[in-house]
Design a protein around this nucleic acid. Structure first.
Lengths: 176, 176
DNA sequence: ATCAATTGTTGTCGTCAACAACAATCTTTC
DNA sequence: GAAAGATTGTTGTTGACGACAACAATTGAT
């Protein structure tokens, strides 16, 4: 990390010239100028992971923005949705189902419980586990969240196209 | 956070009996037993963001695993790919192109420079910026990375189907 | 009764996105 | 050409997140 520390900007006055290889074509610009979108990605295009990362970023940002008024993030929404559809689940069950680490779920449930959306009820059959339930307030809140989430989903449809969205859901159905 | 602290498990000894409601249907399980995949997701299915999140997780894990031998992560790979295809770019240009914060790119380039894959050359036209280049070692390394990345991409194709993968890339092309 | 496994919890570590602030350096404008 | 404003790289902080490790309480199996 101490490799080049404080940016010794002036140090290397190396007249070593640089003259960007003119043969390389695709490059050029250097100082923004105008279009900075003409930067070749080369192999990056054609990489599913890259496209998915960018898309995931966009979609989460839109979700957060659309649900900003109620201050609910995607993970919180997914938790409430699962509990709402399957009341009484244990934390392990929820964690496993959503692919969340149970250690992380603890804090997530803490915040949801603080806001009186979720309830940890001691399980009757297993004194180790908690049965998770939505509170009355949580249920009505979730209903509103779902409306906003539906609006977000419309944004997605507008962005990539209605049928493309459905095709996407179909392709990735195996991961839900 | 202090809401329910140390799990007062025993406290509620409420002999209130409970005998889990047999009517609840859909839930039930509690202790793993056998199939724990029968938990309804309700509205979660049909949410692009959720599917994309799970997929992105899978795909990144596979990328990391496939390139574990060379210790290259997706972001590092994308940086080297872009620099390789457009030598001389500034950090701002790379950051903007890849959707990485320029603050974050600093550390990423530090590590790549430490490993002698990338070079920060003082720009000839703008003494504020650095012209980014792959080192000789970086170029040969990138060639190998690309072979491994191609292998990873084959894993993706195996997972979701060859044509589904291409359709996915096509749908998300606007985000690259 | 004993030992292994499970559940919720706490804590730590490393990655990552989002900001804010700063010095050095352009660029613009008068 | 000097002052004001914008850019570039950098440092630092915050918070969400995934991955692990350890632990007490409890359950299940031997």
């Amino acid at each position: 990390m101490a490799s080049q520390q404080k940016t010794p900007r002036k140090a290397a006055g190396t007249g070593a010239a640089i003259r960007r290889s003119p043969a390389r074509a695709a490059n050029g610009r250097a100082r923004g100028g105008d279009a900075n979108d003409d930067i070749g990605l080369d192999a990056l295009v054609g990489h599913a992971g890259y496209a998915v990362r960018r898309f995931q970023l966009w979609i989460f940002q839109d979700f957060i923005k659309t649900l900003a008024a109620v201050d609910i993030r995607p993970t919180q929404y997914s938790i409430m949705t699962v509990i709402g559809a399957n009341p009484g689940l244990s934390q392990m069950a929820v964690a496993k189902r959503l692919g969340i680490e149970r250690a992380r779920l603890v804090h997530l449930l803490d915040s949801l419980e603080e806001r009186d959306f979720v309830n940890r009820v001691p399980s009757a059959t297993d004194r180790r586990s908690h049965a998770l339930h939505l509170t009355a307030r949580g249920k009505t809140a979730l209903a509103q969240f779902k409306r906003l989430a539906a609006e977000h989903e419309r944004h997605v449809a507008e962005k990539i196209g209605k049928d493309n969205r459905e095709r996407l859901l179909q392709i990735l159905a195996g991961f839900t």
